[in-house]
Design a protein around this nucleic acid. Structure first.
Lengths: 308, 308
DNA sequence: TCAAAAGTGTTATCCTTACACCCATGT
DNA sequence: ACATGGGTGTAAGGATAACACTTTTGA
């Protein structure tokens, strides 16, 4: 048990960085991988005087030939059982980064992959109803696979909430929870699968880390203008909408989306028009970078009193 | 620069845990400290097979004699300059935990402290206008303290947004940003202060970590029913409101707060009444723990299309 | 002419915010 | 009686969700 006092020796552990680098290209969400899509890029801490954030940033920018528009720490994974052969505990600090796709140099196994290759069930943009098929069957089998009636009910409730069954709405932010259920139900190969669900696995717990990154990003686009870091300098409103849809994994209402964007003054017209839209030419817009400084956050959600 | 490839040696670093343990007692927000309030509890990683989370939990529960209702990872601090004497980099994984106050056993330097001792300017429940006095003067001096006019404007804008000046609203979530400005302006002793602003410092970067914890909690109470982890089994609605106010650092609108609580079905009447309220006796309520399972999250904020 | 996308306008509903007022208890 | 807190009702304004329709291009 930890000592948690003033005097203690910090334990010696092995530490590494793991990066979830995201782009959106042609309306598809993409993630930078190594080892032919089997793992996320990772590396040791460097001992220089620079911060983790800073050195990770220069590394990524050198690899992708694009500035990293946005970056934040995701989570630190340190559970036992991650020791990867060595006897010491491995601590992995993961980061989420947003950029634009460009050919990667160096490592031949490195490249961009559609993130729905790893989570096909998270893409609900087409009404393919992936979840409704042999997918749900595996989950049902799992909920039934216990002698205790209370556990069965709990499991079923959990499945319903997380997978949007039984009057529950699909909540696109619950990726990690869904992945964890699939793991518990041993429907993913990483868990030593019984059955299997479509979707490519990754080495170690990288698919879990990717799920954490996607979840964070899906939550973030709702209250912070981070999509723009994934867009080219100018874009049409539909392109912007397609990018958000790619991340969220579901379709958006066109008119309301547009209203939302412009009543928040997020973009301004460039004056140019896009011609190859397939239909009527569209106005091109650019992100008003000023809003990053102007606006801090929006949400209140607490009934504050004005005066005080 | 990190290698971020498939093959790498994970670097060897010193690692520790740091805990921000919060309670609310008598309408005041409290944090568990050691060393007579000069530091947050911290400890080394243990080498057992248990997860960090689990061992931290048992430690805290043994110290506080109260179950840790809620716990989440906060942030991992790993910037250089944190080496604390040793030559290796120190990685600190911080956690936020919610509980109820009880006398701490063991370490005589350990105890609970009002968190506004460390951040007096974050308590806006009384209209004391702490920010308006000698406090703002130091900030103004800092914004002026550069030869470049553009920098001056930027600094002023930043101060205005973060401290709620010039038509900007005070945003209670920006604690960390405010602390960082005070640091840059060298108004806190940790920065090797020029001037000083009221508020006790802490060892190392612990005040910064505490600010991170408070910010997280202030954000969280808006969309997750975590306040209840800080409440006794039964409570009046005003007590509940006072707890939220303690965390948020600002006053809430009574009627609207009550409406909010009951239209979300967060609580149910116990049938008992509280008599020592100072006024009319109040109904006692308890948290409906079921909602943790029932509801997943609320917010949509994206204009989804229904059908798809 | 038709498909595809751009773009405009309007309506119903709900949630937030604010204000006004009455009730029950202890001192 | 009055201070303190408990508790109810309601109205205005804004944001959201949903629907219908016109315009402009390329094939």
């Amino acid at each position: 048990m930890p000592v948690l006092s003033a005097e203690h020796e910090a334990a010696s552990v092995a530490a590494e960085l793991i990066a979830v680098i995201v782009a959106v290209t042609g309306g598809q969400p993409r993630v930078l991988t190594i080892d032919k899509g089997r793992a996320l890029p990772s590396g040791p801490f460097e001992s220089s005087e620079r911060s983790l954030q800073a050195s990770l940033r220069t590394w990524v920018e050198r690899q992708t030939h694009h500035p990293l528009g946005y970056m934040e720490q995701l989570y630190t994974f340190a559970d036992p059982g991650r020791t990867g052969g060595s006897d010491r505990r491995i601590v992995s600090v993961s980061y989420l980064g947003l950029t634009q796709e460009a050919p990667v140099s160096g490592d031949p196994g490195a490249g961009w992959r559609d993130w729905y290759r790893f989570f096909p069930w998270e893409d609900r943009r087409k009404p393919s109803s992936l979840v409704d098929d042999h997918f749900t069957q595996g989950l049902i089998t799992w909920t039934e696979d216990t002698s205790d009636a209370a556990t069965r009910r709990q499991r079923w409730r959990r499945v319903a909430i997380n997978f949007g069954l039984e009057n529950e709405r699909w909540n696109e932010e619950l990726i990690l929870q869904r992945y964890e259920i699939l793991w518990e139900a041993r429907l993913v190969p990483e868990a030593g699968a019984n059955g299997t669900v479509p979707g490519e696995p990754m080495a170690h717990d990288h698919r879990r880390i990717l799920a954490t990154g996607i979840a964070r990003l899906r939550a973030k686009i709702k209250y912070r203008p981070v999509v723009f870091e994934l867009m080219p300098p100018s874009f049409t409103l539909l392109q912007l909408q397609r990018a958000v849809e790619a991340l969220a994994g579901s379709l958006l209402h066109k008119q309301n989306f547009r209203r939302l964007i412009d009543q928040q003054d997020l973009v301004e017209e460039t004056g140019e028009m896009a011609t190859e839209t397939g239909g009527r030419p569209a106005k091109l817009f650019r992100f008003r970078r000023e809003v990053l400084a102007e606006r801090s956050v929006v949400g209140s959600k607490l009934p504050l009193v004005r005066s005080a």
